[in-house]
């Protein structure tokens, strides 16, 4: 599903070059639940952005579903994001002026899905996260847990094979965070590959596979599928 080979990425901060990733090589199979953990500045968010095609590596090779995505044009990358990748963010990133239903519909809108089909799928997606009653609510009228569930419904709206979550529970209290995690695990059970970046040891522990990062390198991999279990 995902093959990373010696990925490097550095940023220019002031007159200093910061090497966020120094040769990361990871292979993740379809359907895995992977947690990426590590201290701040370890490169885990950069890795997630790279995986989500929001960022490009300086060198190395990234294959997604057998397709080399390192050299995609901007439009091609957008298409891959649209069709294969769902994002869940720490700060939810819902558009405040759009209702829950419209937020969930946004990726389908961008993909040009017909309005009638869109409506149907939005209803089903909201039902899946238990928010059918809140479809017409604006984000300002929803609680943090509900917001994250709307965001998850949105991430799943194009039925992606890869779900990337960046601190999905970081902004939620413990019990709500657990609910959200349960929801993500449920999606993973249905076949979606789930990669979660987190500080939370509990989430890390629940993942089937734990990758620990430090200084832009993978320092531990509990079940390195690339090398065979």
């Amino acid at each position: 599903m995902i093959e990373l080979d010696s990925i490097t990425r550095s940023f220019q901060v002031g007159d200093q070059s910061v090497r966020a990733l120094r040769g990361v090589s990871v292979t993740i199979a379809a359907g895995e639940f992977v947690s990426i953990m590590g201290p701040s500045g370890s490169g885990k968010s950069t890795l997630l952005n790279l995986l989500g095609l929001l960022d490009r590596s300086d060198s190395g090779m990234y294959r997604l579903d057998g397709l080399d995505v390192t050299a995609l044009t901007d439009a091609e990358a957008a298409r891959v994001r649209r069709e294969k990748i769902g994002f869940v963010f720490q700060f939810f990133h819902l558009v405040p002026r759009l209702s829950a239903a419209d937020n969930v519909a946004l990726p389908m809108m961008l993909a040009g899905v017909q309005p009638t089909l869109r409506k149907e799928r939005v209803a089903r997606l909201l039902a899946d996260v238990g928010l059918s009653q809140r479809a017409s609510h604006l984000p300002g009228q929803l609680s943090g847990g509900q917001l994250q569930r709307v965001a998850i419904a949105r991430a799943m709206s194009m039925n992606p094979t890869l779900l990337l979550a960046d601190e999905p529970t970081g902004n939620l209290d413990r019990s709500t965070g657990r609910d959200v995690l349960t929801l993500l695990e449920e999606l993973n059970r249905r076949g979606t590959t789930l990669i979660v970046v987190t500080h939370d040891q509990e989430i890390g522990a629940r993942a089937g596979r734990r990758i620990a990062m430090e200084d832009g390198q993978v320092v531990a991999d509990s079940c390195p599928s690339g090398e065979g279990p």
């Binding site: 901007d74 439009a75 298409r79 994001r81 649209r82």
Partner: peptide, 16 residues
């Protein structure tokens, strides 16, 4: 900025 970034993450192309 964050809304634009979100749209891109959701698969919006630059021209969209």
């Amino acid at each position: 900025r964050s809304e634009i970034g979100l749209l891109k993450a959701l698969g919006a192309t630059a021209s969209q």
